[in-house]
Write a protein that binds this DNA or RNA. Structure first.
Lengths: 214, 214
DNA sequence: GCCAATGTTTAGGCGAACCGAAACCCCCTG
DNA sequence: CAGGGGGTTTCGGTTCGCCTAAACATTGGC
């Protein structure tokens, strides 16, 4: 199908990401905010992406990916997450430092290099934040998860994923030794209990960034 | 100083590359041909680069880098060659496959990642083709070299460098086991003698791509 | 059931990087 | 030393991705 530019890939990726952990489709306004650009710019690009068959859009309505669009989006997400994993595993980056670098490289590496990195890393299925890495065919292994902020007090589970949006939260959790795979129990919206039994206060907004097993 | 765009970096890199192994400065026409763009586009960008203090140019004259321009150019070359080295040493690329990938990545990696790769590789001083990797301060260790095509019959030396411009030549030399460090003697413009004593016919133009010790 | 707030689109513009066509300059040849 | 040809520049035009300002659609509150 049509080739995609870096800018277009960012749109598709952001639309995809919006529905990855919650169901409502994204609106132009939210997309503009996430991308840090003006709403009118979104209108314009949306027109092109719709014409190319990557998104479905009725005027004044929300934005949804077509199967072709979802394919492109997962391809970009795959790149992004493999690059993050590579930076952490091979080059000494910490999980709060990888996002910006991956944001650029995801548009620059060839398929050849992508698959070489994938093989080099042993075909990982999750990135350092616990986000699933889509397979080359676009398929993703999804696990049911609850946002810590939505979990009832007393709920105990394993950390599946931590949103990479706020590096501050990532650093505070790393300092506490909390990451994907950690066991913890919810005490209240701002406190968790660690396996050893001690209570740990969460950084502001951290409860809205941590997903636990159901 | 002023930031540089990927396009501007390509201009500076190409101007620098032109004088790396021969003295005459480059002309707009040659630069346009090397970059695969129209001469009028070169005029335009040259105006900007001159205004920003990266190149010196009198109308209708050749193009030369200023110290600031040379700094930028060597920085790009450093990126390019470290990336090539990394692709070959870590990811199973062969020396004829790395150029295009590096061409893109050289504009995409951060300084942080560049230095991480450099450290990871143990601060190499030459890339897979034998081209010197400039240091972070722009300095380059240069060794006197003769082009095989210019060497007199009977001249014996070590291969210092093979131009990466033609992948076909690179593949033919790799098949013969010839690369930087190989010892060989010039028989005539199209034939060399290998250490074991056997004569080896060179691919067309290969003599114009191989540099030997003096 | 109207209307204002909010969100979306249209219209006009801008800078970057490219193009082809035409004008221009330089210098070599006759 | 006069052309003429090749290289260089100018000029107007294109695409891409973004902008602001203004027009327009939708919807929730009264």
């Amino acid at each position: 199908m049509k080739p995609t530019t870096p800018a277009a890939e960012d749109y598709l990726k952001t639309i995809y990401a919006h529905t990855e952990w919650q169901p409502d489709p994204i609106t132009p306004r939210v997309l503009a905010t996430r991308l840090g650009i003006a709403p009118s710019s979104v209108t314009e690009m949306v027109k092109k992406l719709a014409a190319d068959g990557f998104i479905a859009h009725v005027p004044y309505g929300p934005l949804t990916l077509t199967p072709a669009g979802r394919m492109r989006a997962t391809a970009v997400v795959r790149r992004h997450r493999l690059i993050e994993t590579w930076l952490v595993r091979e080059l000494g980056y910490t999980w709060d430092e990888v996002h910006d670098e991956a944001e650029v490289l995801e548009h620059a590496i060839s398929d050849r290099l992508l698959e070489a990195i994938d093989a080099h890393l042993g075909h990982p299925t999750a990135d350092p934040h616990g986000d699933p890495i889509p397979a080359a065919d676009g398929s993703t292994a999804r696990v049911p998860a609850v946002l810590l902020a939505d979990a009832p007090p007393g709920h105990a589970g394993t950390v599946l994923r931590v949103s990479d949006r706020d590096p501050t939260i990532l650093r505070s959790l790393a300092d506490a030794g909390i990451g994907p795979g950690s066991r913890l129990a919810v005490v209240d919206a701002n406190t968790v209990r660690l396996p050893a039994g001690e209570l740990h206060p969460l950084a502001p907004d951290a409860a809205g960034a941590i997903w636990l097993t159901r």
